[in-house]
Amino acid sequence: MGVLEVENLSYIYAHSSTPAIRGLSFGVAQGEIFGFLGPSGAGKSTTQRILIGLRRGYAGSVTVLGRDLTHWKGDYYEHIGVSFELPNHYVKLTARENLALFASLYAPPTHSPEEVLKAVDLVEHADKPVAALSKGMRVRLNLARALLNRPEVLFLDEPTAGLDPVTAKAIRGLIRQQQDAGVTVFLTTHDMAVADALCTRVAFIVEGEIRVIDRPAVLKQRYGRRAVRIEVGRGPEESVYEFPLEDIADNAAFLALLRRPDLQTVHTLETTLDEVFVQVTGKSLT
C-alpha cells in the first residue's frame, strides 16, 4: 500500500453547484516525489487542502500512512509537514523564534531551529524579524518550518515560486535530500521545469479531473518526436532538416550536414513537460 491512497475523491464547495474536483484516484509510494500539476483553478489547492485535513465533507476515500484520513485526529500533524505557497509567519518574531514557537507544538524529537535554518541557508538571518526578510527568505522559512517535526509526508505548494535561480536550485536539492531520506513528497505546482527536475511521477489536473499520471520521462517520450533538427546556412541560404533517430549514425545525409562549415544548430525534438501538458489537456498552464 502507498503512503497516500486517494480513491474517487470529489468535493463541492458550499456556495457552488459544480464539483471543484471529480473522481480523483491516485496513489503515492513511500519516497516518491509526486507532482500535482495544473493551471490556476484546476483543483490543485482543493485537493491539497483535503489531504492536509483542512477540508472535510468530501466524497471518496483518502488514506494517509495506512489510516483513513477521517480517522486521524490532531496527531496527523505530527506525521506530515506542510509548506504553503505564500509566506505565513509572525512578522514581529525572528525567523528563529517562529521556528521555536512551532517546534514547541510538536512532540519531541523535532529538529532544532538551527538545523532547519541551516538546511534552507538562513542561519545568518536567524535573528532578524521576519518583517525584515525578503519574500524568498520567507518562502524558505516556510519550508524550514515544514521540516521541523521530521515529517514522513511533505506537502509542498510551489516551493520555488519567487525564488532566484540559485536559491531555487538549493531548494530542489533539499527536496531531493528529503526523498533520499525516505520522505514522501506531494508537490503542487504549475512550474513544469520544477516538476520535470524533481518528480518521480506527475499528475495533470484540469477542471477538477486528472487527465494523465505517469513519469515525466515517459510522457515526454510518448508525446515528443524521436528526431533531430539541423539548421544550416544564414539568411536566405538558411535551411532546416529533420532526421528520425532510428539508424541516424548510418544516415549519410545527416552526416554530410554535420560536416558543412555553415552548420548553425543541432537539436533533438524531445518535447517539454509544458508541451505534453498542452497536448494532453488542450489547456495552457497560464
Binding site: I52, L54, F102, Y106
Partner: peptide, 8 residues
C-alpha cells in the same frame, strides 16, 4: 493556516 496544520 500554519497553526491549523500543526498539532495545536
Amino acid at each position: 493556516a500554519a497553526l491549523l496544520v500543526s498539532p495545536l
